[in-house]
Amino acid sequence: MTNEKLQDLLDVNELRLTDDETVRMISLFQKMNGCEASLSDINTDNVDIMVHVQPLTNVLREDFRDQKFSRESLLEGAPEHTEDSWQVPILVK
């Protein structure tokens, strides 16, 4: 892990680290990368991937309109909102 690559990951994930945290994170990544060596202990050439532990199938329901929560109650949880919308800084001038 390099400072440059870490910065890319931070940008992708909308995060920042302090200088101290950056040093810690790079050392952490070095350890994690070392642990990954054990992955090659298992030959998976003829093994299929297993995304989920249960055999999932699509769950379908009747197509109907269901407004479980009111707009007002959903807006109440927002850090900032107008009368009928979430409020964010101006995106386009």
Partner: peptide
């Protein structure tokens, strides 16, 4: 491929 995909295969193993 070396990490996530491999881990999904190890889950089956």
């Amino acid at each position: 491929n070396d990490c996530y995909d491999k881990a999904l295969r190890i889950r089956r193993v």
